[in-house]
Design a protein around this nucleic acid. Structure first.
Lengths: 74, 74
DNA sequence: CTTTAATGTCAATTTTGCTTTACATTTGTT
DNA sequence: AACAAATGTAAAGCAAAATTGACATTAAAG
């Protein structure tokens, strides 16, 4: 049997926001997306584009990998 | 006048591939996308998802920011 | 020069990101 | 308790990502 790994992406946006003490709406404004976009990304409903990931990393002064993490699972 | 910055994302996938000496097809296979997906990302036709960016970073053993870079411009 | 591997590109389609609007629920303050 | 701010959620729609298949062009090798 040949196995292809499945990956799920997790994120710690809530934590990052908490550290900087900004709301979803404020983050949305900073990276120029809708508040719902932040909300749904944060709750893992969908995977953002790399542009958004890079913008967020800039806002929080961290590397992309410190916010988004690939984990094994389906 | 209030200015909202426009960003374009560049990538150096060709270079990263060259360093590892792998083809577009091989990279596609490694991260489980179609060869065309690699080709069009590489040529800047569209922006990949964060999952793909993370997978590529893993393949090349670099940070996402070392492959993808936000630059000012429209 | 001829063949093969690698890359470019196009069209058609499916899937997913992201938007807007709107409303419901939770959390925090006074 | 009452009110406001923050968050959750849902539907509808558009735009962009990603797929498949097919074919053309450009390297690279024999």
């Amino acid at each position: 049997m040949l196995w292809r790994k499945e990956w799920v992406m997790k994120n710690n946006l809530r934590v990052q926001r908490a550290i900087k003490n900004i709301t979803q709406a404020e983050l949305a404004d900073l990276i120029q997306v809708s508040r719902q976009t932040i909300n749904t990304i944060e709750s893992g409903k969908y995977v953002p584009s790399t542009v958004l990931a890079l913008k967020m990393a800039r806002v929080f002064n961290v590397r992309v990998e410190e916010i988004f993490d690939l984990e094994e699972g389906d």
